[in-house]
Design a protein around this nucleic acid. Structure first.
Lengths: 138, 138
DNA sequence: CCGTTATTACGAATAATTCACAATAAGCCC
DNA sequence: GGGCTTATTGTGAATTATTCGTAATAACGG
């Protein structure tokens, strides 16, 4: 039901290239991957692609709103394909594992600060830090 | 009313050094400064201090819980002296200005995700992105 | 199929941060 | 107060993540 990747790229006003399709495709199996991991994955189908091109592709797709970039403290930037819903992340402070977390039901207010000192708030980003199930046993 | 900086450093199990005192002192006038800005500030009273030492000092103070490090996307790490209260930040997506934002009154629940997929959540970090008052006029 | 223009490749550069190791100084004991 | 032990700082280089300039390539509209 997801619209064709090629079409969504075109609709965003971008040219459809093998590199962009490959990055989007790789991202499907890697919900929160960094640039290097994506480069490794994409290389399997596109052996010649350079790391720098993956950076450029990710930048373009992010700017076009086709993917989302998150930049957790102490980690390189991660990319995800799930967009449009306002979801947040739980990150393991020990191993770095990332889990999507739906916005707390009925608490959308947490996205509207009582006092933002005159800021015109556009988005709210919530990150939960803790231990993932695996790291709790250690 | 703030306890003596020297004492708080000692209480944290750290040795009291001129460098640590200077960094803490500089941080008083710069609520959300990055390492380089702090280095410049500290140099005024401690001309010989190196940038690397500022990094080390900030790391030690952060680990000891005397200051707090925030790492906004697209910015170097910032440090602040206000700790212990669970406050958040509004950041201008245009100029990078940072404002403290108190936790939404009565909505502490925003710190407890409905489903964290088994994560043992220890802290919640909220960042509001938008335009600061100055940048709204542009 | 051709030309225009976006996109990618290539190579180098930069920014932020960390590391290894030697020099220094804090704090404790006497 | 002097000396000892060990934490801390200074020095210089290395690393990681990312960006930039420019030439080569490929998408897509005519």
């Amino acid at each position: 039901m997801t619209s064709e990747p090629a079409e969504s790229i075109r609709t965003a006003g971008l040219r459809v290239t093998a590199q962009r399709l490959a990055v989007l495709g790789a991202l499907d199996g890697m919900p929160h991957a960094d640039t290097e991991a994506l480069h490794r994955a994409v290389r399997r189908t596109l052996p010649g692609i350079t790391l720098q091109s993956v950076y450029v592709v990710l930048g373009a797709l992010t700017e076009a709103g086709l993917i989302r970039r998150i930049e957790p403290a102490g980690s390189p930037a991660l990319y995800e394909r799930r967009i449009g819903d306002n979801h947040h992340h739980a990150i393991c402070s020990r191993c770095g594992a990332v889990q999507d977390v739906d916005c707390v039901v009925g608490h959308a207010p947490c996205l509207h600060p009582s006092d933002a000192a005159g800021f015109a708030v556009q988005t709210a980003e919530v990150t939960f830090w803790g231990l993932c199930p695996a790291c709790q046993n250690a």
